[in-house]
Write a protein that binds this DNA or RNA. Structure first.
Ligand SMILES: [Zn+2]
Ligand SMILES: [Zn+2]
Ligand SMILES: [Zn+2]
Ligand SMILES: [Zn+2]
Lengths: 161, 161
DNA sequence: CATAGAGTGTTATATCATAACACCATGCTG
DNA sequence: CAGCATGGTGTTATGATATAACACTCTATG
């Protein structure tokens, strides 16, 4: 249930885990990177780099350049804290950092929300099919467009976080 | 085996099937659209819209605008003759048009070739996992980065069609 | 403190994609 | 055949996404 929930908790939780993971790894989660992570988490809809840029410029007072955001995102993706949704050119916070993975996503075309799937059966099927063809897998990308449960009810399709 | 094969045959075959399918459907495969399809098929590497644009401008004598190419590609994708590789912003000819499908791809990071997978087990796994979560699938995207069999041998990694 | 390495700022530029509008080809109607 | 409707194409401009090159700053460490 993504529609109507305590999203402040999602954000706080993500930041806490990020702090812990980076400390553990000796990776430097600087204030800029942490702020970008927080902005990526501003909803469960994948967020474009330039949207985050606007957030930095407008919500904070700091005018920023695209590279600032892209470099922070690069770090966050490397650390597995954020995934890039290729089919949307956008970024979303990882639901389960810690274990590195490429991420599988269900993207709702009605509300724009994307939920992380990470189903081992999907991953297995891909790896099996690939290895049968002698293909060595490095990073599987799975992005499924469709309609989420909430948006299948003709009622409320609010674009909520 | 994509390295070293009679690619002219691949192209001719693709064009023949496209002619047949479009005739059957009453879709208008104009000379421009047919030419773009041929250029997409110039190799088994996904080809960017602007690369095709350059082909049109240089190999043919006709200076063209981006929209010309994008509109042709849009038609070809709608007809299922071409797939878009989201993670590369590029386009590739469909190996099995006729049956409409979203396409699953194994993309080699060494030679750039992309081969179409279309494995029913992968599709089933995705649909099962999605439906367990009440998610209605419209278009699954699977793009696997890795290394193809030919490029795993330290020998010839020529970027062949 | 000195220094090295990582992070950031700044400017410019590359790459990918679409909007708006006019013109032309094709095929159908009357 | 003339007139018209539809869809395809050309042209120009602009928007959206991403990176290169280089200088400066911070932070950890000895
Ligand atoms: Zn939330
Ligand atoms: Zn939805
Ligand atoms: Zn071929
Ligand atoms: Zn290869």
């Amino acid at each position: 249930m993504l529609h109507a929930h305590d999203h402040a908790h999602c954000i706080a939780d993500a930041l806490t885990r990020a702090d812990a993971l980076c400390a553990e790894r000796g990776a430097r989660l600087t204030s800029l990177r942490r702020r970008v992570l927080e902005l990526v988490w501003s909803g469960h809809q994948p967020r474009g780099a330039y949207a985050i840029l606007d957030d930095l410029t407008q919500r904070d007072g700091k005018p920023a350049a695209p590279l600032t955001v892209y470099r922070a995102l690069e770090f966050l993706v490397e650390q597995g804290l954020v995934h890039r949704i290729e089919s949307l050119n956008a970024y979303i916070g990882c639901a389960e950092p810690g274990a590195m993975h490429a991420g599988q996503f269900l993207v709702c075309e009605a509300c724009g929300n994307a939920v992380e799937l990470d189903d081992p059966r999907v991953d297995d099927a891909i790896r099996t099919a690939a290895s049968e063809r002698g293909f060595q897998v490095r990073r599987p990308t799975v992005e499924v467009r469709g309609t989420c449960p909430d948006c299948q009810k003709p009622d409320l399709q609010e674009k909520s976080p």
